[in-house]
């Protein structure tokens, strides 16, 4: 009954209601009206406070990012609430003029997009093969893939760094992408295989009867049917890579480093670098936030499913 079941829901049942979407089940109660009113008042108050607590740190980052270095050094961002004249876009203009940060932002895009497309493509192919094609050792290999779900990226850092060093991939965008793809694959294959496996056999048989080759069946039937799972996977993988710092910290050099690493290197002088760090952090947030609001449902499902990682 968790979110994961949603992602795995077979395509044939797609009309069924989704359990995961945040929704308000309106429930009539048989209680005293006053008690109900008071109770719900208290509940509302608690939830409003909690929501405010959750918004405050983000608001703090946003307002800090628009205040001058001097303002940030002398008092807190909340003074901008009563004195909005403190706010300006100067930090952001300075940020974009700083070629290092702009380049790092571009690197983040260059890493995240291919890493997402590759994981989805490779995992979809493999997922289909594991679900519907027959080849020797299929189940054993899939079991290994499931086992690889556990492997934390930390264990790969050192060996892969040596490997990449030997073949000249260390310190390149391609190296970072490859590492992300490899460590994204076990979960991606696992998810897609399980989803594809629930496509009704008759649909595939019918397509084969019509003379469809495997490639045709894969691209014309399986991929479209798998769209919900693929969308969730793509969003999860994209966010994972976009937000990554650890992998790029090791595998990228100063030319290929993404935004997270570029900002991390400024953390040492946190106090004096707020003028770069706050707008930089906000910049790195914008894309995930857009994804979040644009694809709320797939986002929630993707994150839920991916949490198994």
């Amino acid at each position: 009954m968790s979110a994961r079941t949603t992602v795995e829901r077979p395509p044939a049942e797609r009309a069924a209601p989704r359990p995961v979407r945040p929704s308000t089940p309106g429930r009539p109660r048989r209680r005293g009206r006053l008690a109900k009113w008071l109770g719900s008042g208290a509940v509302q108050a608690v939830l409003i406070v909690v929501a405010l607590i959750w918004i405050t740190p983000l608001a703090g980052l946003f307002l800090s990012s628009m205040r001058s270095e001097r303002d940030n050094a002398s008092d807190g961002w909340w003074t901008a609430l009563t004195d909005p004249s403190q706010l300006s876009l100067d930090n952001y203009t300075a940020l974009f003029e700083d070629s290092g940060i702009a380049g790092a932002f571009w690197n983040t895009v260059l890493i995240s997009v291919p890493a997402t497309l590759l994981v989805v493509g490779i995992a979809a192919l493999a997922g289909y093969a594991f679900a519907w094609l027959d080849f020797p050792g299929r189940d054993a290999v899939f079991l290994v893939v499931v086992g690889l779900l556990v492997v934390p990226v930390q264990i790969g850092l050192l060996p892969v760094a040596k490997l990449f060093g030997a073949v000249g991939l260390f310190g390149t965008v391609a190296g970072v992408i490859l590492f992300h793809v490899a460590y994204g694959l076990p979960f991606a294959i696992f998810l897609l295989r399980n989803y594809f496996a629930e496509i009704p056999r008759e649909m595939l048989e019918a397509a084969r009867m019509d003379g469809g080759g495997e490639w045709r069946i894969f691209s014309r039937l399986v991929l479209p049917l798998g769209r919900p799972a693929i969308a969730s996977l793509a969003i999860f993988q994209f966010l994972w890579v976009w937000n990554d710092m650890l992998v790029a910290l090791l595998f990228a050099d100063s030319e290929s480093q993404p935004l997270t690493v570029a900002l991390q290197s400024q953390m040492r002088q946190f106090g004096s670098n707020i003028g770069v760090l706050a707008p930089g952090a906000f910049l790195s947030l914008v894309v995930p936030l857009v994804v979040f609001f644009a694809f709320q449902r797939h986002f929630v499902q993707g994150v839920m499913a991916g949490s198994v990682k």
Partner: peptide, 17 residues
């Protein structure tokens, strides 16, 4: 749920502040 979209780096900067 919003913070789930935020990188740990950004969350770190937010909380350092």
């Amino acid at each position: 749920f919003l913070p789930m979209a935020v990188s740990f780096l950004a969350a770190g900067i937010i909380f350092r502040l």
